[in-house]
Design a protein around this nucleic acid. Structure first.
Lengths: 210, 210
DNA sequence: GAATTTTTGTGAAAAGATTATAAAATTGAG
DNA sequence: CTCAATTTTATAATCTTTTCACAAAAATTC
């Protein structure tokens, strides 16, 4: 059976929530409490989990540590992933500092730019290479995921470089739909900050019923 | 009739696409081409637009400038919005530099922090205030939207400050579900970067059929 | 130890979203 | 001026996702 994509998205939020609970030393949680922490409903929580098995105990709820372990396995997030950031501007730099990534197993191994001022230096301890070395470095360092944070004008060059590499997943911050002409499957997720603001504006004005 | 939320999300992408086309001097576009630029299908484009009226001309397509104008009106994005950034760390600073916001009518008027080193100075020309002045400044400057980019530890303080203010919409970068105890409606949208990476990992491993 | 409470798991119903199809309108060729 | 080729619009059908409702199971209380 095909698992709803929305379920996968929520699973990632459950993992985040469970990590917090574990840190706080909380052992058990009910679907009701879980829903409160993740902006959803208890039924939704149970339904989402039911796609993968039975994790709870009737009358008692879920064991935080055990459920976390199971969900991490489902999302393949127990293993480490190496990441590259393309674009060493302010956004790229801020992302390289972002603590959260390393905490959950995503290790930024390299950054890429075209500015000679930045190349062969380190930003937050991460080496910055010229973009032409992208394939070489990502293969050597076993990097499978790239974060794209370049100005719009640079996108077509970046597309080209990515297509030639062995990158499998992309987190794209550029407000443009990437055009990757390749047979192999590359997973692309967009983070469009402007879009989010548009949607906020719309929701503010149109009292969305909940 | 209730418009599907997914439609609103795509509308924001259509607006982005149309802006690019307009800049390039393109006058007409068919639903087919539009779909290629926005990672969707022609049927979807037409269906989405049909919720709001008839914008196209049979056999000819849509007039770029006219359609853009209409969609901007629907999303209420023709008007200007004033924005505050809470947290003047690396992410907050990077966001304050982000060109895209101003280009599409979102003007960052103020930043807030608790670090005395940063307060009463300017970052990228934007004044930084102590967080305790949040209500005062946002009301004076007519700020309705706040971007939250603080460390996890600071969230509860920020929640308190927001609840007391008149802020209507929030773009939240902190990987925690905000807990805003208030009767009035505040629109919250989360940007969870870690979640996005989790999902990329999952999709890489589970060849998602398209 | 029986009754009550809590909470899960799941099938069925409802709602929401996408895709496919038929009808209508426009353009351009001949 | 008519016919064929496009391309939109409206609507119907299908598919997906969420919500609802309830039985079953475990824990707790009296």
């Amino acid at each position: 059976m095909q698992i709803p994509f929305a379920t996968i998205e929520r699973l990632a939020i459950y993992v985040r929530c469970l990590r917090h609970l574990k840190e706080q030393g909380i052992k058990k949680i009910s679907s009701f409490e879980m829903a409160q922490h993740t902006r959803t409903t208890p039924e939704q929580v149970r339904k989402d989990l039911s796609y993968f098995g039975k994790f709870g105990k009737t009358g008692e709820g879920y064991d935080v540590e055990n459920l976390l372990k199971k969900l991490e396995k489902i999302l393949r997030t127990k293993r480490k992933w190496n990441v590259a950031i393309i674009g060493a501007g302010s956004l790229g730099t801020a992302l390289s500092k972002y603590r959260g990534f390393k905490e959950v197993g995503y290790d930024v191994k390299a950054m890429f730019d075209i500015d000679p001022e930045k190349i062969n230096k380190k930003i937050n301890g991460i080496p910055v290479y010229h973009i032409e070395k992208f394939s070489e470095i990502t293969e050597k360092e076993d990097i499978e995921i790239a974060i794209v944070a370049v100005p719009v004008e640079a996108v077509s060059d970046v597309e080209e470089v990515i297509v030639k590499s062995k990158i499998k997943g992309i987190l794209n911050f550029v407000p443009v739909t990437l055009n990757l002409k390749t047979r192999r499957r590359i997973v692309v997720l967009d983070v469009d900050l402007t879009q989010k603001l548009y949607i906020i504006s719309y929701l503010i004005k149109n009292k969305w019923e909940e």
